[in-house]
Design a protein around this nucleic acid. Structure first.
Length: 363
DNA sequence: ATAATTTGACCCCG
DNA sequence: CGGGGTCAAATTAT
């Protein structure tokens, strides 16, 4: 199985991330730095070799698809259609189901359709019940939200099993033990909901017998709009949201938090996203893949939510982020030894947090 | 200091 | 009444 190769790619990313995290601590240790780079290169090279050796282009494509599904998501999907003048609305979930990486069988499928119809935007006044004196009881409708369920494998690479992370920023707001399930279910809502707009929510839970597979259910659609850095001047008419780019987000492969991306605060490097995205898209083109099918998701039992950077940069549509991409992709899959430069590019776009929250309530 | 996560309580629905 | 989802205060991380 070539999942090994895919895992290697992930592993490479992980290592890169770790290196990035420790960069500030080892800049004086060229030896270590060098070794680290070497290690990373080795991993990627290895992955490439595997792809070339035992996989057909198609398999590579599939692998990339899986990878993208895990790391990126609809955000990308949307961006893709927007930036590339995609007229073919990517709306439905048309990808194909997947199954693999986990080993266990378990068929099922992919997305149980919900119900059809659009709609979301529930009452904005839906808060204030659990507390104490709430005199309001906004009806809680649960059938309206279109539910989309998706099962995705937890990257079980090397040693880090990062829970699914999609391109959106979610905030965990609850966790509960579910009858009959051995693992708790965690509830997330879009981080930007605070601006009272994004009704998107999702719940994540590990499958009983396949701790490495998560089942995520999405409810509601994202409508995050972070107009420039202006919390005071929130976008008017939320419902509309047709003018500006409606959904964008970042995506990272994080386990924990984030730091720089959001709309208002901390201005900092905030563009890597575009590079990543363009890279991804570039790959799609390169492999002639169809857009990612669904979204993916995140977090597991112990909690991590994540991050993303929504393009704080006032969502500049695009920049000249189209060329380094080719190099990157090429470096990753074609050249094998001298990919240092490319790695730099990768690093420049990786933001991550670390933390060893070892936890794993296995059975 | 701020933001995210944790966790028990509370509410709705079946 | 109990399961499942959400809130919100407290806690922890950044």
């Amino acid at each position: 199985m070539e999942e090994g190769a895919i895992s290697l790619v992930f592993h490479g990313f992980k290592l890169a991330r770790e290196l990035e995290e420790n960069l500030p601590n080892i800049t004086n240790q060229p030896a270590i730095l060098s070794a680290a780079c070497d290690e990373i290169i080795k991993v990627f090279t290895n992955a490439r070799d595997r792809f070339n050796a035992q996989s057909t282009q198609q398999e590579i494509a599939v692998g990339m698809q899986e990878w993208l599904k895990q790391g990126c998501t609809q955000a990308m999907d949307l961006l893709q259609s927007q930036l590339m003048g995609g007229s073919g609305k990517t709306d439905q979930f048309g990808g194909g189901g997947m199954e693999m990486v986990g080993g266990r069988d378990r068929e099922t499928s992919a997305w149980l359709g919900g119900g059809g119809g659009a709609v979301q935007l529930m009452d904005v006044a839906d808060s204030g019940r659990g507390g104490s004196s709430s005199s309001q009881r906004p009806r809680r409708r649960k059938d309206e939200a279109n539910r989309r369920i998706e099962r995705l494998p937890a990257p079980r690479m090397g040693n880090t099993e990062i829970p699914p992370e999609d391109g959106y920023t979610w905030r965990k707001y609850g966790q509960k033990e579910i009858l009959g399930s051995r693992f708790p279910r965690s509830y997330y809502r879009c981080t930007h909901q605070k601006l009272y707009q994004c009704p998107a929510k999702k719940q994540v839970q590990r499958l009983d017998d396949d701790p490495y597979t998560f089942e995520v259910m999405y409810r509601g659609d994202h409508t995050c709009i972070m107009s420039s850095t202006a919390p005071s001047a929130p976008p008017t008419s939320v419902g509309g949201a047709t003018t500006t780019h409606e959904v964008r987000h970042s995506h990272h492969y994080a386990h924990m938090q984030m730091q720089p991306p959001p709309p208002p605060p901390t201005p900092s490097a905030s563009v890597p996203l575009s590079r990543w995205l363009s890279m991804d898209m570039q790959m799609y083109r390169h492999f002639g893949l169809s857009g990612p099918g669904g979204a993916s998701s995140s977090s597991g039992g112990s909690g991590m939510v994540a991050s993303g950077g929504a393009g704080p940069s006032t969502g500049r549509y695009r920049r000249e982020v189209d060329y380094p991409v080719v190099d990157l992709a090429d470096a990753m899959f074609n050249s094998g030894s001298s990919s240092n430069n490319s790695m730099e590019v990768i690093f420049s776009s990786m933001e991550e947090k670390k933390e060893g929250g070892g936890e794993d309530p296995k059975n």
